[in-house]
Amino acid sequence: MNSPVARIGIVTVSDRASRGEYEDLGGPAIREWLERVLQSPWEPVARLVPDEQPQVEAVLRELCDEQGCCLVVTTGGTGPAARDITPEATEAVCEKMMPGFGELMRSVSLQYVPTAILSRQTAGIRGQTLLINLPGKPSAIGDCLEAVFPAVPYCIDLLEGPFLETDEALIKAFRPKKK
């Protein structure tokens, strides 16, 4: 199946990384994971923003509405601290929330750390874009993506986005069988 190049937004939400005080490890971890798993053509559209809700909302809207990303994955800002506002920014820009993503990611993370219950990861739909909030810790990013990504290509199909193919040896995307 010949499909257009999928654009995927990768957003790191971090005060320290945006000021250059801390190396962004989350965004590159997402990109490396996607490079390993996706077999269909895609291009990353990366952004790094501070934990400021208006700025996070603006970048999410830009990636969805102007950049035409079919998927936007964020890292950071999902905890309980006062400056952790990524879920609020995501909810503010989405028309539909997809709570199953956050539920599954927390469930998987609880197998590794009891503090996973403090995470407020969520997901939602804006137009034809699926937005997913991931934690900021690079090792948790892979764990969470492995858990939810089997459903991502079909969700994007339902949003009439590009056809995403995965390396089935790594992640088997679920698509219902056609009758």
Rank of each mutant, 00 (worst) to 15 (best):
V11K: 01
T78A: 10
V13K: 00
S14D: 02
S3N: 00
T78S: 13
V45T: 02
V72H: 10
E21V: 01
I156Y: 09
E146C: 06
E57H: 08
C144Y: 00
Y22L: 14
T129F: 07
G26Q: 07
I85T: 13
L60N: 12
Y154G: 05
V108R: 13
M97L: 14
A147K: 03
G9L: 01
A151N: 03
R19F: 05
A123Q: 09
V13Q: 01
R120Y: 11
E43A: 10
T129R: 04
E165R: 10
R47A: 09
K178C: 07
V37F: 10
R126L: 10
S14G: 03
L158N: 10
E57P: 09
R106Y: 06
D157Y: 11
V108D: 06
M97D: 07
E43N: 03
W33H: 15
G127H: 03
T74W: 10
V72Y: 06
F174E: 13
C69G: 11
I141R: 03
Q53S: 10
S14R: 02
P114G: 05
I117Y: 14
A82F: 08
I85G: 03
E91P: 03
T78M: 13
K177L: 12
V13L: 00
L159H: 14
E165K: 08
I10H: 01
S18V: 06
T86G: 10
L158V: 14
R16A: 05
I117H: 09
E62M: 11
E21F: 07
P87K: 11
E43M: 06
V11W: 00
A151W: 00
N2F: 01
V49R: 03
F174C: 07
G68S: 13
G68H: 12
K179N: 09
K178V: 12
E57F: 07
P4G: 00
P44H: 04
L110V: 04
Q67A: 15
L118K: 03
K96P: 01
G9W: 00
S107A: 12
R16H: 04
L164V: 15
V5R: 00
I30Y: 07
Y22K: 14
R16D: 04
I10K: 01
Q121T: 12
E52A: 03
S3T: 09
V13N: 02
I117T: 15
E146H: 06
G161Y: 12
P153Y: 03
L131Y: 08
A140G: 11
T129A: 11
P138D: 11
D51G: 01
R126G: 09
Q53V: 12
D24L: 06
P44K: 04
K172C: 15
E95T: 15
P150Y: 01
I156P: 07
I8W: 00
L63Y: 08
Q128A: 12
G142A: 05
E66R: 14
G26F: 08
V59S: 03
I125K: 08
K96W: 15
L170T: 15
P50F: 01
S109W: 04
T166A: 15
E91S: 13
R175D: 10
Q111N: 10
C69P: 09
S3M: 01
C155L: 08
E66K: 10
D167M: 12
L34Y: 09
P135Q: 10
K177W: 11
F149Q: 01
Q121A: 14
G124P: 12
T122I: 13
T74Q: 13
V11R: 02
A6E: 00
R31H: 14
A58H: 05
